[in-house]
Structure formats: structure tokens, C-alpha cells
Design a protein around this nucleic acid. Structure first.
Length: 676
DNA sequence: GCGGATCAC
DNA sequence: TATGGTGATCCGC
């Protein structure tokens, strides 16, 4: 049985249940393994109530089971399984007294949250119905009569409702969709067209709320409070009017949710999809009812036999609460965790189980779940970036390609990505300090490696140089080589290009971020981000010659207009850190240059086992090899300063002792090698 | 700050 | 024949 039973299935009467049971039995005899393969495709979506989910699941499983993708999914599932089991143990270990205490604490928080409840707002969440597909159908009506999907054989972005009946849906790979529905028609996406259609809808949104919040091309939040007051209309009336206007102007239908906050409005827009609307009245009781006992929405097509039975049999179970998965932010993993560790499958359960939730979840998570249980949500538009502010946290690009395993191929990809990223940044007038390299192996495992540079990065060359450094460090850690199917670059710590020269723009930005973070609930413990990094790099001597110790980490990058002071940093031997070129010590691990060569020899020598990420290096007791990157900035800093006791890493002191020993004995060792 | 994971669209 | 790209956030180091 699926752990998450959909809404529609709950109302099924005994006869149909028997039918399902029989089918289950039949399929059980095949093998049964497919049942454990949970994909996002089995999650209920609008227009998919009648889909035979078990069949879809089996098809997806059959087509996936031998792939590397599947293996990776299994690995991820096992990991979350472990975490959930851990949570279950913790839950079982809770004593009655503890639970009592947590319940009181939960009640306090609930009282605080409840005090902030607002019922005076009218929010609309507008969601265009199967947007891309609908635009294509509008422009080519013959597509209306066939199952159709926008996207390629790689991935589907949207499916029309005819296709959804087969279980075809967004985010599904095309080849699986074709198997589910052989006559499926594929249409190449045309984003220019969708953007122009979105512009038409947005012109209408703007009439109702000039500050409306577009979440994507096909989705927006509208604060209809002022309009409702000014015109003396209810939210439902405004929604009705809006839907008609959108249809008249674009020929497209949309669904609208009406509620006193954004979170509820979003849930509501999905209730009567497509081309419908649903309101939760701005009353506390109505909201709690909505969460506890979901009204029977669209009635499923009812078989005559079933109708007959329904009158004779037990009353329909209409009182099923809102499934937690309907809430934005609760995905596959959270759903499983809540269900198995906390016995929460519906929003109403969140309040019943508040003590365990507060006991086991993080502060933020618990707060979120309590809010959901109370039906609370944002009642104001999210803050918009002010003038001159960046408005985003990062900018990135990534590409999937056929498997590559040679370094030149990888460097070629990096060059393309760097150029692309630099171009995008230039378009938005951005520069950044942190670069993250993303690698996905042919086994679908994802790794990310990041550097934060003391200077700004924005040019293709600057980005490429930093990216190469990250790649080389990774290659050094994987002597067996890499087989990649994806590479990506992401720039973060962004700022606008062309700030006044010499101003400590970075300091100001981070300070503002820090204040904002500290202001946010639960964020007060976070340290100012850049302080340790600045200290790491401060000892750089100003006159260092650029080329001295060059491993591929970024130098200070001049802005296109103003010339900055070029500063070489980075060291080949320790793979990573910023090193003043003139220093004889690595600023990351504190080794003298010569020592590192010796350590490397020792690690490489056949007499000793090779260090790897999983085995302990024979030279020290930490998990990482000396040649590998020392994890974590705080750890690097402590190593450099010799304050190991502040770092909670077992064996670190011993590690330093060994290093010292090596340093003292490096000379004879080096000599002995020369003699070989 | 870094890296893994999750989530939404 | 064979599972995407972009952006954000959270958690635990």
C-alpha cells in the first residue's frame, strides 16, 4: 500500500477497495519490488485523480531499475530512511515528563503565533492551468484533442489534461512518458511565446494589485485587500472577475485560491483546478475546519453501482483532513518523515503531535510546522530589493552532457560555463566573491566545491581560473579519475558592478546581511560570515609576486573599468587555500612548503596505504588526507593558529604532533629520496 | 564558510 | 535510447 493515500482514494467504497486489493494480489506475485520505488510522479496532481498510480509506479520502476539514476535514488532513499529511523528512536525515548514539558513549550509558541494571526487580508493565488501546454493548444487547437506534452525526450515541463490521464506529468523524462502513453505528442518549448502570454496575464494582475508577486511565468500572489475595500467586493467576486478577464485577454484559463494569507491561498488554488476557484473564509474556525476536514471537492465520476452502494453502505468518509504534502515546502522526504516518525499525514495532526514536533525538529522546522497546523502564513508581500540592491543570492549555469572523463574535455566545459556565467553576470551588472563548482558523476552523485575569493570575480578569465583551481583540487582527490555527466558553476556573494572604488563594499554588504540574519527568528547565533576569511587572507604580503605559488585560485579581479591590485594566492601543494606567494608556509594547514612535498611522498609511497576520503590517512588521524582539503574554514583557521582544542575533531592534536614530527625530519627524508 | 540535501517551478 | 536547469534554504559541521 502506498504510504500516502490520495484524497480521492479515501472516498472509495468497499467494492472498489476490493478491486484494488485483488489487483494488488496479482501484482504482488510478479515481484513486489516496484512498490518500494516512490517517485514524485505518484504524488497527486490536478487532473490526475483517475490515474492508476500503481500502474504508473510499476512502469516507472521497470524502466528505471537497471539505471545508474535508480541506484542513486535508492542510495538517497536509504539515507533518509536512516534519518527517519533515528528520529523514530528519539521519539520512542521521550519520557512522559519530557513530552509534557515540550507540550507546554509548544503551547507557548502557538499562543505567540496565534497572536499574530491576521484575518483582515484578502489574498489571491493565481495559477495558470497547464500553462505552456495551454498556450500551445491556443495557438494550435488540434493539439487539444490529443495527449500532448511540452518538452523533449529528456524532460517534460508540462502535459495537457488528456496526457495527465495516462500519468504523464511535468518533470517526467520523455521516454517514460512515451511508454505510459505511446501516442503522446511532444511539442518543443517556446519560452518567448510563454513570456509574452505571461505579460498579458500580468497586465491584468497589475490592475488588481500593482505590487503583485510573480513566482514564475504562470503563478502569482495578489494582495487584493485594497481593491476589495475600495470596490466593496469579496475576494471570491474579485477572483471570478479576474478569471474572466484573463480568459478574455489571453484565451487561457487559470485557477485562483482565495484566503487570508499566502500559504492558504496557494493550497486553495489547487483545490478546483482547472478553471476554478476556492476560498477559505477569513475566520479562524473556517481555517481550522479546512485543515481538519477537507470539504468534498470535485466529485469524482461515480459508477452507478457505487452510488447504489453508497446509500446502503456506511457513510462516506468525507472528513479526511488536508494532506500535508499539499503545503508548499513539504516534499517527498518531509512527507515521509512526518508520516513515519511523527504519525502526521494531515495538517490537523501537526497540532495533535505538537509536543513531539517541538521535541524532535529544529527550531525553525517546528515553527514552520506549527504555523502550518494553525493555518497561518505570510500576510504581506515578501520584501522587494531596494534600489541598488542585488535582488538575488546567486547566479549559476550548469550543463548535462554525454559522459566525459578526460581533463581537457572537462576544462573545455569549464571554459564554456565560465564564459556563459560571465556573460549572464555582465547582463545583470553583477560581480561576486564565491564560486561553487558542481560536478555530477555518471553515477548521479553530486559534489560541490567552493572558494571564496578576497576580491571580486566577474570576467570569464577570472571565473575560469578559479573554477580550474577547484576542478584540479578535486582531480587530485580522485586519483582514479572522474567520469562526469554534468558540470555547473554558481557565483554567490553578489554585488552590483561599479561601486565606488576603494569603498569596503563587501564589508557593508555582509554587515547588512548579518544584521538581517540576526534579526530573523533563530538566526541570531550565526556568526558574521566573512570575518574568518578576512583573517585568513590578511597576512598576504602586498608585494608578493603574482606567479610564485599558483594553483589556480582566483586573484583579485579588476573591474572592467577600474584596475584593481592583482594579488596572487593559492598553493598547489595543499590544493586549496589562499597562500601569500611570498610566504614559506601554507596559510591553510601551516606546513612549510618543503614538508608538504615530503608528506606527499610518504602518502604516495607504496609502503603506506593510500589516503582516501574513506580511509584514515596514515600520516594523521583525521578523515581527510593531508593532500586533500582540510574541511571547513574554522578548522583551517584553527590549524593555522594552532588552536586545535577549539575544534571538535577527534585526533586533530595528534595530527599536529605528527605533522611537527614530519617537519623536523623532513630534511633527511628528502635527501634519502634524492639518493633513490 | 562549506557541502549535502531538499524543495519549487 | 536511457532522468533538466535555476534559485533558494536549511542543517550540521
Amino acid at each position: 500500500m502506498p504510504m500516502h493515500v490520495s484524497l480521492a482514494e479515501r472516498t472509495v467504497d468497499t467494492e472498489v477497495t476490493e478491486d484494488v486489493a485483488n489487483k494488488e494480489e496479482r501484482l504482488e506475485s510478479d515481484s513486489g519490488a516496484w512498490k518500494k520505488y516512490e517517485t514524485v510522479f505518484t504524488n497527486t496532481k490536478a487532473g490526475m485523480d483517475n490515474v492508476d498510480k500503481e500502474k504508473v509506479k510499476k512502469v516507472v520502476y521497470e524502466m528505471s531499475k537497471d539505471s545508474a539514476f535508480f541506484q542513486n535514488e535508492q542510495r538517497k532513499m536509504e539515507n533518509s530512511r536512516r534519518k527517519i529511523d533515528e528520529l523514530i528512536c528519539q521519539a520512542e525515548a521521550l519520557t512522559a515528563e519530557q513530552l509534557d514539558r515540550f507540550e507546554k513549550s509548544a503551547d507557548d509558541r502557538i499562543a505567540e503565533l496565534e497572536a499574530k494571526r491576521r484575518l483582515d487580508k484578502v489574498w489571491l493565488h493565481v495559477d495558470m492551468d497547464a500553462f505552456y501546454a495551454a498556450v500551445e493548444e491556443r495557438d494550435n487547437p488540434s493539439l487539444k484533442d490529443v495527449p500532448m506534452a511540452v518538452g523533449g525526450t529528456g524532460m517534460i515541463t508540462t502535459a495537457n489534461y488528456k496526457a495527465r490521464r495516462f500519468g504523464v506529468r511535468s518533470a517526467m523524462p520523455g521516454f517514460i512518458a512515451r511508454r505510459l502513453c505511446p501516442e503522446l505528442v511532444f511539442v518543443r518549448p517556446d519560452f518567448a511565446k510563454y513570456r509574452s502570454a505571461a505579460d498579458e496575464t500580468r497586465a491584468i494582475f497589475r490592475e488588481l494589485d500593482p505590487d503583485f508577486e510573480a513566482m514564475s511565468l504562470d503563478e502569482a500572489y495578489l494582495d487584493a485587500t485594497p481593491a476589495a475595500r475600495a470596490r466593496g467586493l469579496t475576494g471570491a467576486e474579485l477572483a471570478e472577475e479576474l478569471r474572466h478577464k484573463v480568459l478574455a485577454a489571453t484565451g487561457l484559463t487559470c485557477s485562483v485560491g482565495i484566503a487570508p494569507n499566502k500559504r492558504l491561498a496557494k493550497v486553495c488554488s489547487d483545490m478546483n483546478k482547472p478553471n476554478g476557484q476556492f476560498e477559505v473564509k477569513p475566520e479562524r474556525g473556517a481555517i481550522l475546519d479546512f485543515l481538519r476536514a477537507l470539504p468534498i471537492r470535485k466529485v469524482r465520476p461515480v459508477l452507478p453501482a457505487r452510488r447504489h452502494r453508497q446509500t446502503a453502505g456506511p457513510p462516506p468518509k468525507s472528513a479526511a483532513g488536508l494532506p500535508i504534502r499539499k503545503i508548499g515546502g513539504i516534499g517527498k522526504v518531509a512527507e515521509q518523515m512526518l508520516s513515519e516518525a511523527l504519525s502526521v499525514t494531515e495538517c490537523g495532526h501537526l497540532l495533535d503531535r505538537r509536543a513531539v514536533i517541538v521535541a524532535l525538529c529544529s527550531e525553525r522546522a517546528a515553527g514552520f510546522y506549527l504555523e502550518v497546523g494553525l493555518g497561518l502564513g505570510a500576510a504581506e508581500h515578501s520584501e522587494r530589493p531596494g534600489d541598488g540592491e542585488v535582488g538575488r543570492k546567486g547566479i549559476s549555469c550548469e550543463r548535462t552532457f554525454r559522459a566525459i572523463c578526460t581533463v581537457p574535455e572537462m576544462e573545455q566545459k569549464l571554459a564554456e560555463l565560465s564564459a556563459h556565467l560571465a556573460e549572464e553576470m555582465a547582463e545583470e551588472g553583477l560581480r561576486g566573491r564565491s564560486l561553487t563548482l558542481k560536478l555530477k558523476g555518471t553515477d548521479f552523485k553530486v559534489r560541490t566545491r567552493a572558494v571564496t575569493s578576497p576580491g571580486w570575480l566577474c570576467s570569464t578569465d577570472g571565473i575560469l581560473e578559479a573554477a580550474r583551481g577547484l576542478l584540479r583540487a578535486e582531480l587530485r582527490q580522485c586519483p582514479q579519475g572522474l567520469r562526469l555527466r554534468l558540470m555547473g558553476l554558481r557565483m554567490s556573494h553578489l554585488a552590483k558592478l561599479g561601486g565606488a572604488p576603494g569603498t569596503p563594499e563587501r564589508g557593508q554588504t555582509t554587515l547588512r546581511e548579518f544584521v538581517a540574519k540576526a534579526d530573523a527568528p533563530g538566526g541570531s547565533e550565526r556568526a558574521a560570515p566573512s570575518a574568518s576569511q578576512r583573517e585568513l587572507f590578511r597576512e598576504r604580503s602586498p608585494g608578493a609576486e603574482p606567479g610564485g605559488c599558483h594553483g589556480g585560485l582566483p586573484r583579485q579581479e579588476a573591474e572592467p573599468a577600474a584596475a584593481g591590485s592583482p594579488e596572487a594566492w593559492a598553493c598547489r601543494a595543499c590544493t586549496f587555500a589562499g597562500n601569500p606567494a611570498s610566504s614559506s608556509r601554507c596559510s591553510v594547514c601551516g606546513f612549510a612548503k618543503g614538508t608538504k612535498a615530503v608528506v606527499r611522498q610518504l602518502c604516495d609511497s607504496p609502503a603506506l596505504p593510500r589516503p582516501s576520503l574513506t580511509t584514515r590517512c596514515p600520516m594523521h588521524s583525521t578523515r581527510d588526507s593531508i593532500l586533500g582539503r582540510v574541511q571547513g574554514a574554522h578548522l583551517r583557521k584553527s590549524l593555522w593558529r594552532g588552536r586545535c582544542r577549539n575544534v571538535n575533531v577527534p585526533g586533530l592534536l595528534e595530527c599536529r604532533r605528527k605533522i611537527r614530527w614530519l617537519q623536523q625530519h623532513s630534511a633527511p627524508l628528502r635527501r634519502s629520496r634524492k639518493n633513490v
